[in-house]
Design a protein around this nucleic acid. Sequence first.
DNA 1: GCAAACTTAAACACTTTCCCTTAACCCATC
DNA 2: GATGGGTTAAGGGAAAGTGTTTAAGTTTGC
Lengths: 134, 134
Amino acid sequence: MKQGLLTDRQKEVLRYRKKGLTQQQIAEIIHTSKANVCTIEKAAIENISRARETLEFLYTLDAIHLCTLKSGLDLLKAPELIYAEAEKQGLKVKYDTISLINRLRDANPERFSGRQVREDVEIYINKDGDLYFG
Amino acid sequence: MKQGLLTDRQKEVLRYRKKGLTQQQIAEIIHTSKANVCTIEKAAIENISRARETLEFLYTLDAIHLCTLKSGLDLLKAPELIYAEAEKQGLKVKYDTISLINRLRDANPERFSGRQVREDVEIYINKDGDLYFG
DNA sequence: GCAAACTTAAACACTTTCCCTTAACCCATC
DNA sequence: GATGGGTTAAGGGAAAGTGTTTAAGTTTGC
């Protein structure tokens, strides 16, 4: 079975970048041109957003987009926002406040730090009131 | 910019499948063989798990390498190894023994056979004690 | 057992991606 | 203007992915 979308080269560049190295520095380390490093990094970012879009598609397969939890939002305020939007759509959310918060954190632990949303979270709902996050 | 990982053909098959159609029925609709529908569906599922793995990799970027589960290791001995290494790093693992073992096997089923590690598994940990495998 | 649903393997043409080079360009700051 | 960081475009060779067919193999339910 093949691994993820990113090639070894792409992962390598992303790791060095994460450490704060410039493209020029990376180019010297991996023995190529800085233009090439740029291209590889760009391809990696492209692949990452393709991966995101792919999973988005899955949710849209049986769910509709409900709302977005914007970066910085208090996690405890998410439920009322979600309930309000669901009501607009004439749908009933399957989870109560507590389990909704748990589900949010469990499904995407890396997107929250403490009570705060670290990164935009898309909320999807299907006819059964199931929620999905993207 | 390219779209997600799934081709139009793959999305088409997944949508019909979601509706409950058999591969044979889909084959007739899209004018090809059922074997081909099977292949396309399989490729779609494969692409979806590649997308998931790709995003998993992103999390390991925020994480540091903790240790390696060497091929041949008894899976039941992994937790104590991991706990010990995490303590050295001053980090607390987020999972208890049972859920850690489950998470190991669920994340990479093909790398374990029974209680044994079949292939080296790299363990990463982030500041929150989340574990990732590479 | 039988049939329907599903899976797999091999092979093929076709397309796309990947890494690389070279050469140019933008945009800050000094 | 020069320097450093980053980006873009064009092109090429190797590798991988896609859809397809044919043919064989499971698995599942009646």
